[in-house]
């Protein structure tokens, strides 16, 4: 046990070189129409993990508490990570062999070399379900603390309103939100997503074929490669998205497990994605952010990005913008030492 702790401590040293930042700005159209910011973002660096998470509350009238829904989603993820990584009695459920359930820490579950891919996927699935459960519990609590007003009830679609009024059925859709999160622990990276938005990873190479990850939209930036490793969900297209409030939300989580810590991970809402018609430009934007954080003083880089996002929203999508990032500046500098000319990324393949 002590050996294990020692090993984990050694692995955690790698995380010390990471930085974590998050940004969340109200969209230009939300300001114009006096709507709240419906996005939420969080990032943190702890001794044994770092996380970056964003959530994008849905905009339509029937999702009238989605600003709270996104905040709750971000908190749910954070709570679940802390619970999973600190509680040694954290269980994951292997539905095919209920008797084999083991008290296991999430780090063990995911990083053990003995664990099969199938079991790892079960652990990730279980972890996603715990986020969903955590979100639903907090949403119900919020509804109890502050029941819907008459005006809010009028916004509930008719078919659900009757159920809500007569049978006190819980209309959790009012809190509908997406979620994208990145978790760096020990020597692996876990990415999860439900709904639209984007997750872009920067590293020295794309995942090898043995990982069975098929990243989309890959671009080369000198010695760096950026790619989107989370599988695409065809249900998330144009105005449609999957959501934490969906009846089948537990089946709609997508995830990706990277066997090594990447140079940087960005998670962002579709408010940013929708500003760029060309995918390469989106990757270039995140690349530029990395350059700025590696070139400038961190506080200055943060202030520049914070000031830029409202302008981006105004000229681009008009939507709320949330962005959360984890980055290893020293590794980034090392890999980009010979390409400091801030060039455009070139498409490797698509």
């Amino acid at each position: 046990m002590n050996d294990k702790k020692q090993k984990l401590k050694q692995l955690s040293q790698k995380l010390k070189s990471y930085g974590a930042k998050h940004f969340c700005v109200q969209g230009a159209l939300h300001i114009k129409n006096n709507l709240p910011c419906q996005d939420s973002a969080q990032s943190c660096l702890e001794e044994n993990f770092c996380l970056a998470v964003i959530a994008d509350g849905h905009g339509s009238a029937q999702y009238f508490r989605s600003d709270r829904g996104s905040r709750i989603a971000v908190e749910a993820f954070e709570n679940c990570v802390k619970e999973a990584l600190t509680n040694s009695k954290y269980y994951y459920h292997d539905s095919t062999h209920p008797k084999d359930n083991t008290a296991i820490n999430l780090i063990d579950a995911l990083s053990s070399s003995r664990i099969s891919i199938k079991k790892r996927n079960h652990a990730i699935q279980w972890f996603c379900q715990s986020i969903l459960a955590n979100w639903l519990i907090a949403v119900r609590q919020d509804m109890q603390n502050e029941p819907f007003t008459k005006e809010e009830i009028r916004k509930i679609p008719e078919k659900y309103r009757t159920l809500h009024e007569k049978d006190h059925s819980e209309y959790t859709s009012a809190y509908g939100s997406t979620l994208i999160a990145a978790l760096l622990v020990a020597d692996f990276c876990l990415l999860i997503q439900i709904g639209d938005g984007v997750c872009i990873v920067f590293d020295d190479a794309e995942p090898d074929a043995s990982s069975k990850i098929k990243p989309v939209h890959k671009y080369a930036h000198g010695n760096l490669v950026s790619f989107e490793p989370i599988p695409v969900d065809d249900k998330c297209f144009l105005n449609t998205t999957t959501s934490l409030c969906d009846a089948k939300a537990r089946e709609e989580f997508r995830s990706c497990y990277l066997k090594k810590l990447p140079v940087a991970v960005f998670v962002s809402s579709d408010g940013i994605e929708d500003c760029f018609h060309e995918r390469a430009d989106l990757h270039k934007f995140f690349h530029r952010i990395l350059f700025d954080f590696s070139d400038s003083h961190e506080a200055q880089a943060q202030a520049e990005l914070q000031a830029f996002l409202p302008r981006l929203s105004e000229k681009g999508s008009g939507d709320d913008m949330s962005l959360s990032m984890l980055y290893d500046v020293s590794k980034f500098k090392e890999l980009t030492a010979d390409v400091r000319d801030k060039q455009l990324p070139e498409a490797v393949s698509n």
């Binding site: 929708d274 500003c275 760029f276 018609h277 060309e278 430009d281 270039k284 934007f285 530029r288 350059f291 700025d292 520049e304 990005l305 000031a307 830029f308 302008r311 981006l312 000229k315 681009g316 999508s317 008009g318």
Partner: peptide, 16 residues
Amino acid sequence: MGIYDSILMKAVTRRT
């Protein structure tokens, strides 16, 4: 000129 201005001018467009 801010470091993101070239991106704003060249790459960012309204939705279509």
